[in-house]
Simulated assay, not measured.
Amino acid sequence: MTNTITWDDFTRVELRVGRVLEARVFPDARKPAYILHVDFGPEIGMRKSSAQITDHYTPESLVGRLVVGVVNFPPKQIGPLRSECLVTGFHDADGHVWLCVPDGEVAPGTRLL
């Protein structure tokens, strides 16, 4: 059974649309990952993230793509990278991640509610 949360619990998680401006292999990661530079619009700006999404995506296929990220987690040190957001996705039957993305063009920084 899923734990029930309140509306206030949900609204504390800041899910925003961002556009990937740069993606490259994260050579120091323990598991295969990319370093993403994501633009979350003028209010939030650019954030870096480590993303274990190498099974379905190449760095070139990620640049320009819209993603949904959590922007109000505290920064997390992942090896030499200070990850500043969490890019969201879903595991498939094989445990590989597919990104959670908007179904159309949405301005970077738009909040999910």
Rank of each mutant, 00 (worst) to 15 (best):
G64L: 11
E22K: 12
P80I: 14
G95N: 00
N3C: 07
T6L: 13
Y34Q: 04
G104D: 09
V71I: 13
A107Q: 08
I53K: 06
H91N: 11
R82I: 14
G69M: 06
D28Q: 15
T4L: 13
V70T: 09
V71S: 00
Y34E: 01
H91F: 10
A93V: 12
L86V: 15
V70P: 00
L112W: 03
D103M: 09
R111M: 08
L81D: 08
W7L: 15
G89M: 02
P102I: 02
H96Q: 06
M1Q: 06
C100Q: 03
T58S: 15
S50H: 04
S83H: 08
V25G: 01
D94A: 14
V106M: 12
E22H: 14
G104A: 12
R111F: 03
I44C: 05
D8P: 00
G69D: 00
G89E: 00
D92M: 10
V87H: 01
S83G: 11
T4A: 04
G89R: 07
G109S: 04
V106W: 09
R19T: 15
D28G: 01
G109V: 07
L36A: 07
G64M: 12
V101C: 04
L81K: 05
V13C: 12
T6E: 08
T6K: 10
V25L: 10
L36V: 12
P74G: 01
W98N: 01
P108Y: 03
R111P: 00
D8Y: 04
T110W: 10
G95I: 06
V17M: 05
T11S: 12
L99S: 09
A107N: 03
N72F: 05
I5K: 06
V68Q: 09
S83Y: 12
G109N: 07
V87C: 05
H96L: 02
V17W: 08
W98K: 11
V68M: 13
W7Y: 05
L112V: 15
G89Q: 05
D94W: 02
R82K: 14
V97Y: 00
G79Q: 08
G45C: 09
K31S: 10
V68E: 04
Q52T: 07
T6G: 13
R47I: 01
H56E: 06
D94R: 09
P102R: 05
W98Y: 09
L113R: 08
L86G: 02
L62S: 09
R30E: 11
E43D: 14
A33M: 03
L112I: 15
D9V: 04
S61R: 06
D55T: 04
G109Y: 11
P32N: 01
K76V: 15
S49N: 14
R30M: 10
D39W: 08
A93E: 14
L86E: 03
T110V: 07
S61I: 02
E84C: 11
V70K: 10
G18W: 08
T6S: 15
W7D: 02
G41P: 06
E22N: 13
E43V: 10
I5C: 06
V68N: 05
M1K: 07
